[in-house]
Design a protein around this nucleic acid. Structure first.
Lengths: 373, 373
DNA sequence: CCAACTTCCTTCGAAATCGAAGCCAAGTAG
DNA sequence: CTACTTGGCTTCGATTTCGAAGGAAGTTGG
């Protein structure tokens, strides 16, 4: 089912090749899935020199996932099919600082409304995904010591959402969702990918051997590395000169404000850079150098196949160019020999795709239930 | 077979529990393995409240692995059982700079002699493992752009060794072997482990999700990260102020030599520190601070369960204490909350154990052949 | 147009795997 | 000492999976 959902297989024959199962076993199980209403047959595919395959796809009635990617003041909502492809999206203003109960209740309500408005009432909801701008304990689905989410510490987000919807819930850090989405959407054949999210904060998600690396829940933090800089700035974490305190969108906004240039959102910095405002360009280049320096050590250590730069600031070309330059200059040739450095391709829907992918990964339970019927 | 070799299972019942196979299937296959001479039954184990299990272990005649861990001027040789436990060890002086053919021929010959001398002539050799102090391409078993191994670049080490022995050969970076061995021997239940090898150079191996992370072959490099320091030193890699140029055993020896203290081998630095020679202690503390700074970023990023410090310098207590202090002070609390920082437990035999573990992992082919007979 | 491939998919007997039941050999409680 | 409990291991019929063979539906080249 996963092979069909990810688009890697479109026919029984491809399923057999990729899964390693015998063709006869594949046929049997595909038939079960069709009978259960999860798969649908859709015409014939292109011939590869012999009989044309009968194309398989997920049935529309197989189900949907509802996904919300929360930021500090904003949530991106989506209803997606089981492959993670968005069927309907919406934006919701909400202040995460009002606490988990109110925020999540509003989000779940809006997700339901979204699905209803787009004629999905007859399609069962198979899971809910929540992206949060803070560290999440994968075992419990709780937020742990978030810096900018008052009231959320140790709140059982997963249980709360499952309780209010009755379906499996996935709770994950926003950068991690983005990393899974980028990998699944744009680099599925690469094993090791690093995804940096440059927005008002600096986040990072890591794919190792094709799977999200969570560590003990804190993996992927790159924002509190000490950097070398002339001016000393204290970071919210209590240490001086963290990367985030110098190079995040929020830090850039503050430094621009000190020069008389007022910005409210990181995307406005991108606009200023595009307009050629010199203070903005210079600030962004400095940030790029700092971020690049930190990434140098991580690229040498982790030796990824690709480094993807996303988040709203990734549209500032000088920023990306500077990062790229620093990495190619300072890293070991062996580490950069085959390294792709690219900007996000999936864009804002990467997290939806990522959540869909992870939700499908925990779908074994309900799939089995559906098949038994 | 792997479960028995690693000591995780000692009876058919344990195999069934851990493998997920049905007890009846386990019994069948164990019988095959015993018939083929790979397993042996050995008395009864401790009762867990019912009938006592019949203990299983690898048969002596099942085979041995031959392992050589090469350094710049020295090789550690061992014959090990299929579990990686050393049955016989030896040391060999050899200069790696004479090139791969001569070095490997001598090593293979000495390994054969070692096995012969210890009465293992009747036991089949199932594989040969070679540890090298440079980057190895996992796909081809070749060394790639090693800095201190003249003549080895792109030499097909694996094919050469297989050609001269007729058995599967494993070629791997020395720090990687050590990492696998430490993980397998001392921290088998942890998923994510970082192992640092502090000797005349600085190496690092990474275990992610229980498996060795190789990246594109260069993963685990931490020695060419730029550090901040007053005195500028050029590194062999062409960049200034790499960690290795300041904090490796070789760098420490050079800096001590400049102060009139002559050392030839990193272990002598440990002796000097133990004797309380102030220049040595001070040098080692400075190195610890630099290494700790670099590790801080990596610990935040990778969020391991354990950080193991090995190599000959790991016996210098002030060095380890300084590293530990820097990490606990600078890392995110979330990253250090459950972090173990320990020194090597397996010591010099870690690489042997690691090679054995990896060789058993690629043993499917010959096991199948043995069973078919 | 036709024969000679290719590839896709299903059919059907063989082989592997499972799981319930039962036997075996210990510990344990009275 | 006996009866009961617990866990280890095997037996045997049911189920799943496999793989060779063959039919179906194409392409390719004369």
């Amino acid at each position: 089912m996963r092979l069909v959902a990810t688009g890697r297989a479109e026919s029984r024959a491809e399923l057999a090749r990729l899964s390693g199962l015998a063709a006869s076993s594949v046929s049997l199980r595909v038939e079960q899935l069709i009978d259960a209403g999860l798969f649908a047959e859709e015409g014939a595919g292109a011939s590869r020199g012999g009989r044309r395959p009968r194309r398989l796809r997920l049935a529309r009635e197989a189900g949907v996932f509802l996904v919300a990617d929360l930021g500090a003041h904003h949530a991106r909502l989506a209803a997606a099919d089981l492959a993670g492809t968005p069927l309907a999206v919406a934006d919701l203003d909400c202040d995460i600082a009002v606490g988990p109960e109110r925020t999540l209740t509003a989000v779940v309500e809006s997700l339901r409304a979204l699905a209803r408005e787009h004629g999905l009432h007859d399609v069962p909801v198979r899971g809910v995904g929540i992206g949060l701008p803070g560290p999440v304990d994968p075992a419990t689905g709780q937020v742990v010591s978030p810096s900018r989410m008052p009231g959320w510490n140790d709140f059982p987000v997963r249980d709360f959402v499952t309780g209010h919807t009755g379906v499996p819930a996935l709770v994950e850090n926003d950068a991690n969702l983005m990393a899974v989405g980028e990998h699944r959407g744009s680099w599925p054949s690469l094993d090791n990918v690093m995804v940096i999210k440059l927005g008002s904060g600096i986040g990072c998600g890591v794919i190792v051997a094709g799977r999200l690396h969570r560590g003990r829940g804190a993996a992927g933090d790159i924002s509190h590395v000490r950097i070398l800089s002339e001016a000393s700035v204290d970071c919210s974490c209590g240490h001086p000169d963290c990367l985030e305190a110098h190079a995040s969108g929020a830090a850039l906004a503050a430094s621009l404000a000190a020069q008389g240039v007022v910005v409210e959102h990181p995307s406005q910095i991108v606009d200023l850079v595009a307009d050629g405002v010199p203070q903005a360009t210079s600030a962004v280049r400095t940030a790029g150098r700092l971020i690049g320096d930190v990434l140098t050590a991580l690229v040498n250590f982790f030796n990824p196949d690709a480094l993807v730069i996303g988040g709203s600031l990734s549209n500032a070309e000088p920023l990306v160019a500077t990062i790229r330059g620093v990495i190619y200059e300072r890293c070991l040739p062996l580490a950069t020999r085959n390294l792709e450095i690219a900007t996000s391709r999936a864009g804002r829907d990467a997290s939806v795709l990522g959540a869909g992918h992870l939700l499908l990964g925990m779908a074994d339970d309900w799939i089995e239930r559906v098949l038994e019927r």
